[in-house]
Design a protein around this nucleic acid. Structure first.
Length: 665
RNA sequence: GCGGGUGUAGUUCAAUGGUAGAACGGCAGCCUUCCAAGCUGCACACGUGGGUUCGAUUCCCAUCACCCGCUCCA
């Protein structure tokens, strides 16, 4: 990473992304669309490589994980079961003064006196109006506003001190709606400026009206009037109101639904019956298809289901280039494990983590904690394997208060993006690339309840082991499992008698070898990873020009495994047909094995530099030696140029495929 | 969602109330025996919509987008 100012690095990366065809703004010719991005030729290759690396390491190189590719639109009930419908459609209110946002159901009810304000006038203008009216000034009479202005002032109690108090009180006989009408007419005919919005402010009982006036003036001051004099109309006692900000008594907006799922309609009719959502995460499809996959894959718990696919969230505030987008791609694994009661029944004990770091090859008696640790370490290895240095990553253990209610533990893997916040020591804190969550049996249990279909697995080993346990052990394990199920059902909102009954049934099932598996979920963002790899690869260094003078060079130091183009093939000169012919032969030789880019335009140094910006790790140049002009021993050898060190090496053409394939796999 | 800033070729930047230049990049050609050489030619831009004006890329308003700070991030 180049040592520039933080904002500048990001700007350079954004501009290079466009210049070289990594990332474009979506719908750019129409002015763009907030939160959506497209990948150009190099970006598309980069993303493919990321996904392929992930897929290979998660499924093809393992025995215990299989794949799934589910539809983006699923049954709406899935999102009820997962909790997305309710949490995504919370009613939210905003404080009109501080703009702070609250969940409507979490505002503490307040009691006290509500002061109603119906308008505000600018202090300077009000004073001018008052004087002009008293003096019957021309400016008013010319627009025949005198009667209006007179009527306005007559409606007010104690006009003289209104300015110093900061508020106007209407005479009890005055109709406030008529007063507003006069204000508006004055504004329309003479340009007299006022704000006719109404606000109410709550103050505790016994507090003077001035404290309400102060809050009201601040609210009006955010509008047109810089020094507002507010118009007070009435006050009333209230009890248990949730319409005011508990912190300052300022009014809150009407509760507004706040749904972060993108909606669509299935079928041609836009009715509530047809409402569907674009999935906000890919994980739920895995849970919903759990039984089908289990049935056909000949897998047994512990095993996992992996999926790569698009997801959509109607983010409030897309930010930081592609980092927070409304359409994005996820790579998720749901790894199903036995509940600890089953492990203990079968193996006598449960293995827990004993030391930090990778715990090694999975063992059948591993408990959820060690499985969780295993996946954290596996994922860190993955990132290092595709070129993110360990010191650019942060392993962050979520604090208990940060955990989602169903999660037992979550580790975030963060990458230190240039736009990351810094801690008090000035170190980049990092932004989330992936979360590895231990989610207990929450998800499958939810779908079991909502769909009314069993999500249990049958464990032959458990069934045969259980009868051999001592009655004491049996009842201990059964009780623990009952308690766990009972806790879940209570949290899920089942009435206590029904919850108790269901938990007893679950506990009975355990003794017969059935249980709902628990799950460890490593969930990563493809686009975030692509951005991290681009940021990590970006590098400015010095390279000599053809006269040996050092010039700055931009080079994308992608790991060969994920580099969009693996090798570029150049004839040294393009006007020598023998060189061109040979170079094209080399291109065809390599093409079946990797992405190859052929370039014959311009000087050779220029072509190297072009590939440096694309992040192509290798350049192969065909020269006159290749043709055998310097003798037979150099015939059919080429220059292999390495991107980062710019070193050159003489390599036999026949050795090239194996040589290059070794580095890109 | 709030506040501030910015929108001119692919990129980075100029200039201007009378419809725009450069550098680099791109393409084509010539040349060129290993790190952005040279020469010739070509293509490409005032984010969008209103308003003011005889005339707007320029001034005003709105909108969209991007950046920064807050807010939010199940």
């Amino acid at each position: 990473m180049a040592e520039s100012k933080p904002g500048e690095v990001m700007e350079k990366i954004v501009s290079l992304s466009k210049r070289r065809g990594f990332i474009f703004q979506s719908s750019e010719v129409y002015g763009g669309l907030n939160g959506f991005w497209d990948y150009g030729p190099l970006g598309a290759e980069l993303k493919r490589n990321i996904k392929e690396c992930w897929w290979r390491s998660m499924t093809q190189l393992r025995d215990d994980v299989v794949g799934l590719e589910a539809s983006i639109i699923m049954h709406p009930r899935i999102w009820e079961a997962s909790g997305h419908t309710s949490t995504f459609s919370d009613m939210m209110v905003d404080c009109l003064l501080t703009k702070k946002r609250f969940r409507a159901d979490q505002v503490d009810p307040q009691s006290g006196v509500v002061h109603h304000f119906i308008a505000a006038v600018d202090a300077t203008e009000f004073e001018k109006l008052r004087k002009d009216t008293l003096l019957q000034k021309d400016s008013l009479s010319q627009t025949s506003c005198v009667p209006e202005a007179n009527k306005l002032l007559e409606s007010i109690e104690d006009v003289g001190t209104a300015l110093s108090k900061g508020f106007i009180k209407l005479k009890p006989t005055v109709n406030s709606a008529e007063f507003i009408e006069i204000l508006k007419r004055l504004g329309a005919t003479s340009g007299y400026n006022s704000n006719t919005d109404a606000y109410s402010v709550l103050v505790p009982k016994g507090k003077p009206i001035e404290s309400a006036v102060r809050v009201a003036r601040e609210i009006y001051a955010k509008g047109s009037a810089s020094k507002p004099v507010v118009v007070w109309s009435s006050a009333a006692d209230v009890a248990g109101s949730t319409r005011f900000n508990p912190e300052n008594g300022a009014p809150l907006t009407e509760p507004r639904p706040f749904n972060l799922m993108l909606k669509t309609y299935v079928g041609p009719v836009e009715s509530a019956d047809n409402l569907a959502y674009l999935r906000p995460e890919t994980a739920q499809a895995i849970f919903a298809q759990f039984k089908n996959v289990l049935e056909v894959s000949r897998q047994k718990v512990p095993f996992g289901i992996a999926q790569v696919g698009k997801a959509f969230r109607n983010e409030i505030n897309p930010r930081n280039f592609t980092f927070r987008s409304r359409e994005f791609e996820q790579m998720e694994l749901e790894f199903f494990i036995r509940p600890e009661e089953a492990i203990e029944a079968i193996y006598g004990s449960v293995t827990k983590p004993s030391a930090p770091g990778h715990p090694g090859e999975p063992q059948p008696n591993w408990g959820w904690q060690i499985w969780h640790q295993y996946w954290v370490e596996e994922r860190l290895r993955f990132y290092e394997n595709i070129g993110l240095p360990r010191n650019s990553l942060v392993e962050y253990w979520q604090q208990p208060e940060e955990l989602a209610h169903y999660a037992r533990a979550t580790v975030d893997i963060l990458y230190k993006f240039p736009f990351s916040k810094r801690d008090e020591k000035g170190e980049l804190m990092g932004e989330e690339l992936e979360g590895i969550a231990a989610r207990s049996d929450f998800d499958l249990s939810q779908h079991q309840r909502f769909a009314g279909k069993t999500m249990t697995v049958f464990d032959e080993e458990l069934k045969t082991t259980w009868p051999k346990l001592s009655p004491v052990k049996q009842s201990e394990l059964r009780e623990r499992y009952f308690q766990a199920r009972s806790k879940y059902l209570t949290k899920a909102g089942e009435p206590s008698d029904k919850g108790e009954k269901l938990a007893q049934e679950d506990a009975d099932l355990l003794t017969k070898g059935y249980y709902v598996p628990h799950v460890i979920e490593p969930s990563a963002g493809v686009d975030r990873l692509a951005l991290a790899l681009i940021c990590s690869a970006y590098c400015e260094d010095q390279a000599p020009d053809d006269k040996g003078k050092l010039e700055s060079r931009v080079v994308m130091k992608f790991h060969p495994r994920i580099a969009p183009i693996k090798v570029a093939v150049f004839p040294l000169l393009k006007n020598k047909p023998e060189l061109v012919k040979k170079a094209k032969e080399v291109r065809e030789l390599l093409r079946p094995h990797m992405t190859v880019f052929y370039d014959e335009a311009g000087a050779i140094g220029r072509r190297y530099r072009r590939q440096d910006e694309a992040g192509t790790p290798f350049g192969v140049t065909i020269d006159f030696d290749t043709l055998g002009e310097q003798g037979a021993e150099l015939k059919d050898t080429v220059t292999l140029r390495e991107r980062d060190a710019m070193t050159q090496e003489r390599v036999r053409i026949s050795d090239l495929p194996a040589r290059l394939c070794a580095t890109i796999r």
